[in-house]
Amino acid sequence: MIGLTHYLIVSLVVFALGLFCVLTRRNAIGILMGVELILNSANINYLAFARFGSGNYDGQIFAIFVIMLAAAEAVVGLAIVLGIYQTFRTIDVSATETLRG
């Protein structure tokens, strides 16, 4: 029988993958993808706790909010990536260190 623990383990694996992706990628799009993974691991947690925990729909509604937020974040993030590309002719984030103090 699959229980809450299984879901949490999956969620943890996805979160770890996302975090690893965010920290190691130099490609801007790769970083954005890592962020998406982190957000989805959070979604898994919401749904798991909604199913096995409180028994109401709060978690599910929050999951939908997060999906919507991820879409908006992707729009903004991709627009920034496009801007970086147009300026630097690359999407390698290590090239964009002109904002250093």
């Binding site: 920290l23 984030v93 103090g101």
Partner: peptide
């Protein structure tokens, strides 16, 4: 002194957050 913290490297910032 403190301005040196602001490296501009996104990866570094992310490491700092974590």
């Amino acid at each position: 002194v403190l301005r040196r913290l602001q490296t501009g490297s996104i990866n570094l910032y992310l490491y700092a957050i974590v």
